[in-house]
């Protein structure tokens, strides 16, 4: 019986953690390629989700809708870079952050205008089947989603570590001006990262929204994913998987054992309490870049 409860907690924690990791990796791809902390990442997921819903509702087959939505999100990412961020290359991180705050507000408003405030059903892409393993009821679509996200994150981590373009994008994250002095195209790096982040947002939506009612408020998932970003560190890609699993399992365990004692509050507070703790002990996160001060 105890084993069954433990497995349930692990299943819930790992699959929830994968959702957080999917959102968190969108943050990190953009930060890792341009030193831009994109606070509008949740809005990117929301727009990706509703693009897919709109395409499916208009008769496009689900897989086709996912591909088209991915292209659409990549285009939105490129437009954001072209219209908003291009002029800010070389400016302070705060200036870039404030620009993404503006993007958040605009995309959020657009989401409400274009898709309306009413919740809509996101169709199941991976079917409705379930597996029962050691007494735990597992949704196949959620397991598929988690596998897709893990593979996607590992592929991105490999890309940044082993490819020429990944190396150049990392140089941009270190310093816009130094990268420019070496002839690295900083604008292109930022543009590519936003396009990739747009595609990731679509894949995250496809992987985890199946069978759920979605409204523009799903953008708030970015705030729950924030502790994962900070725990893993802003510059890591593969590290978000570990960050996601820690936060996910911690939250599931809080829900199982502490929520009954705290009227359901513990699981809500856990990620943010963890976030504060990380900021105090290790501000760069588990795998982030430590600032090197020369005295």
């Amino acid at each position: 019986m105890h084993m069954e409860i433990l497995l349930k907690v692990l299943y819930a924690g790992i699959t929830t953690g994968a959702i957080y990791a999917a959102v968190a990796v969108g943050f990190n791809v953009i930060y890792r390629s341009g030193r831009v902390f994109n606070i509008a990442q949740g809005e990117m997921v929301m727009i990706g989700t509703f693009l897919m819903v709109a395409l499916i509702n208009s008769g496009v087959p689900p897989w086709g809708a996912m591909v088209l939505a991915a292209f659409g999100m990549a285009t939105i990412g490129l437009l954001v870079e072209r219209i908003v961020l291009r002029k800010l290359v070389g400016q302070s991180e705060m200036a870039l952050f404030m620009a993404t705050l503006g993007i958040l507000l605009v995309l959020n408003g657009l989401g409400h205008i274009l898709f309306g405030p009413e919740p809509q059903l996101f169709p199941e892409l991976f079917g409705r089947g379930r597996w029962r393993v050691a007494g735990v009821n597992m949704k196949i679509s959620v397991l598929y989603g988690a596998v897709v996200i893990v593979l996607l994150i590992l592929a991105l981590a490999w890309f940044f570590k082993h490819t020429r373009i990944g190396l150049l994008m990392t140089a941009v994250a270190e310093s816009h001006q130094t990268a420019r002095s070496l002839g690295v195209n900083v604008r292109a790096s930022i543009a590519v990262s936003w396009a990739v982040s747009g595609v990731i947002s679509t894949i995250a939506a496809a992987a985890f929204m199946g069978g759920r009612m979605v409204s523009p408020d799903i953008a708030s998932i970015a705030f729950v994913a924030m502790p994962v970003v900070l725990l893993a560190g802003l510059e890591t890609i593969g590290g978000v998987l570990i960050g996601g699993i820690i936060v996910g399992i911690g939250q599931a365990a809080s829900a199982r054992w502490l929520d009954p004692l705290t009227e359901g509050g513990a699981s809500l507070v856990f990620p943010f309490a963890l976030m504060l703790l990380i900021l105090m002990i290790r501000p760069q996160g588990l795998f982030g870049w430590k600032t090197i001060e020369r005295i």
């Binding site: 020429r164 150049l168 310093s175 990268a179 002839g183």
Partner: peptide, 16 residues
């Protein structure tokens, strides 16, 4: 490029 190794610093320039 402080978080990169010496060799990676050199590789960035050659990649360009």
């Amino acid at each position: 490029l402080e978080h990169m190794s010496v060799e990676q610093n050199l590789l960035v320039a050659s990649a360009v």
